[in-house]
Design a protein around this nucleic acid. Structure first.
Length: 802
DNA sequence: AGCACGCCGACT
DNA sequence: GTCGGCGTGCTC
């Protein structure tokens, strides 16, 4: 029998990032298992913490001073051995704490909720009355002032107050009282017949129950209450005819009743792809496929059919979709094929709803999981296929710790289950496409559109001419004419404003002064609706100045282009047009995104104006015009992926036009009409773009030819951040071979965020076996030797280079 | 993270 | 002299 449990405690710090041994008390000896949460005392104050049991072991003589597990939180493991394993793999590969990884893998409600309570032991102690008033206990949190806190400490030291730590489990299982029918219809009928006449209500109840047994064995008390009072039910329970108990109800967000839809007939290319994937999943072969298919080539149908095949082999399927593409339309299609076996995980669900879906998956009730990035951790077992749609999407990479890429996690999990992974995209990331080239992934191509419709015609509009014509507007004549035509024909238009690295800010026309955030080194963004300036990094907000703070000139006004400004301009040009604006401001509220899309889909508006978020997934037959107002704001950014992003965005947005039987047209306004990313997007020529871009990456020694890792140092004082970065460089250099390329240290493009300065080093390398252990060591030691103010963050394969 | 221990400055 | 400032180190 095991007597010791290895526990990862809920303290995210380098020094505690290791298992701690705890004795398993006799009473819990048969209960405690790896993958469970437990409560343990930790540290000098012996505060109670939640921890995860990651291993059990036996020590003949336990070292003295071992604390014992106080209690278990779960009665059975909430993490399978596979997911437990995944947490340590994640911690190692992303340089994150294991506790952070464990919490990332699980739904948010499973995180411990801590409370520190002060109990008054000697009620007549001086100072106590002022703090406790008439109460015996007091929660200690940051509501208390510093003075109150010091008083509490004094009271504690004198023994008048005792601290207690409590851990609350936020994971509430919702229950409702229900009547359980534990007799057959015949028994109820018979029982009803034998009842004396005066028991009218009992008789009626039993007769009613007899009619229900065929349908269900559980009826919520609430639904019965309309016809039968609580006392009637109580009597029936006393006679052992029913039992009344709280049954678990899972909050389910089901779409409107949908009928199961049959498979579609496949084109030859689709059939070939399905056959290849089916063969791999049936053979339980670990193989990564790259499914490269133009918009409208029926990738989704390939996903659905291959998932169906996996289900027939009693295995499960996981489908990842970018958050932004997780539209009701998309989810509906999966429901229509798999019905109730589907679980959906996305950010629109409440914490409780997420927990319920998680439990449905864990219990094996859901065999197909559809979700965004974090759904890659779905507690599925026996996975037979993992699909990642729009695999090039940068939202698959988590920006904060653990800085994982869902693609890597998917492939890691697939290796465990010996199952294939399908990466799908019309514009694969260079990394994936290059791996397909090398034969690491198997390339499957869908070059034809299902409806045989031609891809929309793309017009490149040279905005430099617009300037020469002195049209000081964001709309070129050709795009404006195209919109006019659509309005006349009662067709819809989608206009996209590329906001990457771009926003409207306030600048003085006389002295050039730009209003900046006092905490961060970036200009504030103008928000017309709230008449204020906001910082997009820290949330700082201030009123729009009437005069320039620098030179007192009154000529201080906005500069640049925001959706709000474009909307005003559009409304001015087309007073009769109905416009829907979609950006972070109008879609912040829950369900707003869906509501706006629905309105547009119903034809309630003529023009949909939005940012990148409208480039994906939406599929409306009446849209025949797509306009990109500024195609190349991203091209100017100092990021080697700028061309790739521009190409992907333009290709994707172009796919929004002409989804129905009407022909679509696309206008791309740009100041770089000859740029290859724009020219090749016009021709819908991914393969040519891939070849061109690979060449450039090769010359610049960039991914996918090189691996990259970014090490950033931040500190409230700029010279300290810089100093740390240079020390980092000194430690890195001896461990690296001559082939590695080190960039920096350099201040970040936005050097200061939330009053912290950032310096970064980027290492480009092909094979550096000493690098990973060194980075792990750097994290260990920096926490000790530097001041507490210093943060070191390591990001493998960062997507954001600035 | 949070707590204790420990070593220095301005108060009863 | 001591109360309390925060710098350092440890938590099974």
């Amino acid at each position: 029998m095991f007597n010791i449990a290895e526990v990862i405690v809920d303290v995210p710090a380098m020094q505690t990032n290791k298992p701690f041994d705890y004795e398993i008390p006799m009473a819990l000896a048969t209960v405690v298992q790896p993958g469970m949460r437990v409560l343990v005392g930790f540290g000098k104050g012996d505060r109670t913490l939640q921890g995860f049991v990651i291993n059990l072991k036996t020590l003949a003589k336990a070292p003295t001073g071992l604390k014992a597990i106080k209690d278990v939180v779960d009665l059975e493991p909430i993490l399978s051995p596979e997911l437990l394993d995944l947490s340590s793999w994640l911690a190692q590969t992303t340089y994150a704490f294991q506790i952070t990884c464990l919490q990332t893998i699980l739904p948010g409600v499973m995180r411990g909720d801590y409370e520190k309570i002060a109990y008054l032991v000697t009620p007549d102690a001086p100072e106590a009355a002022a703090l406790f008033h008439d109460k015996k206990a007091l929660t200690v949190d940051n509501q208390l002032t510093n003075a109150q806190l010091t008083t509490l400490v004094r009271l504690k030291n004198s023994g008048a107050v005792r601290f207690e730590y409590q851990v609350h489990n936020k994971a509430r299982i919702k229950t409702r009282q229900a009547v359980i029918l534990n007799k057959t219809a015949a028994q109820y009928t018979q029982q009803a017949a034998t009842l004396p006449k005066k028991l009218q209500r009992q008789k009626a109840l039993l007769q009613y129950l007899a009619t229900q047994t065929a349908k269900t064995k559980v009826i919520f008390t609430k639904t019965l209450q309309a016809d039968f009072s609580a006392s009637v039910l109580k009597t029936a329970e006393k006679h052992d005819l029913i039992t009344i108990e709280a049954v678990e109800v899972k909050r389910r967000v089901l779409p409107a009743q949908t009928e199961i839809q049959a498979k579609q007939v496949l084109l030859p290319d689709q059939a070939k792809a399905v056959a290849a994937i089916d063969a791999a999943s049936t053979a339980e072969k670990q193989q990564v496929f790259l499914l490269e298919g133009v918009t409208g080539s029926g990738k989704t149908e390939v996903y659905l059919q291959t998932m169906a095949n996996v289900l027939t082999h009693q295995r499960t399927a996981l489908m990842l979709v970018p958050e932004i593409a997780l539209t009701p339309q998309m989810v509906q299609r999966v429901y229509q094929r798999f019905g109730d076996q589907v679980a959906v995980l996305h950010s629109g669900l409440s914490e409780g709803e997420k927990y319920d879906e998680w439990r449905r998956i864990k219990a094996g009730e859901a065999k197909v999981v559809v979700g965004a990035r974090s759904a890659v951790f779905a507690p599925l077992e026996n996975i037979g296929l993992i699909i990642m749609d729009e695999e090039h999407e940068s939202s698959y990479k988590q920006e904060d710790t653990p800085r994982y890429h869902a693609r890597d996690v998917a492939i890691h999990r697939a290796a465990y289950y010996h199952c294939p992974v399908v990466l799908g995209s019309a514009t694969p990331s260079l990394e994936s496409r290059a791996r397909a080239q090398k034969g690491v992934y198997q390339l499957l191509r869908l070059p034809k559109r299902v409806n045989q419709a031609p891809l929309p015609e793309v017009h490149i509009v040279d905005m430099r001419e617009n300037i020469q014509q002195n049209r000081n507007l964001d709309f070129s004549r050709s795009l404006a004419d195209a919109i006019t035509l659509r309005l006349a024909k009662k067709e819809q238009s989608v206009l996209m404003l590329n906001r990457r690295g771009f926003s409207s800010f306030v600048m003085c026309r006389d002295c050039g002064y730009v209003v900046k955030c006092p905490n961060c080194d970036i200009s504030l963004t103008l928000h017309v609706s709230s008449h204020s300036l906001k910082c997009h990094y820290c949330g700082h907000e201030e009123p729009i100045p009437k005069t320039c703070p620098n030179c007192q000139s009154r000529k201080i006004r906005y500069f640049g282009t925001g959706t709000e400004k474009i909307e005003q301009e559009l409304q001015h040009m087309y007073p009769e047009a109905k416009i829907i604006r979609m950006d972070v401001d109008t879609t912040r509220r829950k369900g707003a995104y869906e509501r706006l899309l629905k309105q547009f889909g119903q034809g309630d508006a003529d023009i949909l104006l939005g940012t990148q978020m409208i480039a994906k997934g939406l599929d409306f037959p009446n849209v025949t015009l797509v306009g990109v107002i500024n195609a190349d704001t991203a091209l100017g950014l100092p990021d080697f992926r700028a061309s790739e992003r521009t190409f992907q965005l333009l290709t994707q947005v172009a796919g929004r036009a002409g989804r129905g039987d009407k022909k679509g047209e696309v206008f791309v306004q740009t100041y770089n009409p000859d740029h290859y990313a724009i020219q090749l997007a016009k021709r819908h020529d991914y393969e040519h773009f891939f070849a061109t871009e690979m060449n450039i990456r090769h010359q610049g020694n960039y991914p996918p030819y090189y691996f990259t890792v970014q090490i950033s140092c931040s500190h409230p004082e700029e010279n300290q951040a810089a100093k740390a970065a240079y020390q980092m460089l000194k430690r890195l250099q001896p461990a690296l071979s001559a082939k590695a390329i080190v960039l920096g240290p350099t201040p970040r493009a936005i050097a200061r965020i939330k009053n912290r300065y950032y310096y970064q080093i980027i290492v480009k390398y092909k094979s550096e076996p000493k690098l990973a252990p060194l980075l792990a060591d750097i994290l260990q030691t920096t926490q000790r030797s530097f001041s507490k103010q210093l943060y070191i963050a390591i990001d493998r394969e960062p997507l954001q280079f600035m």
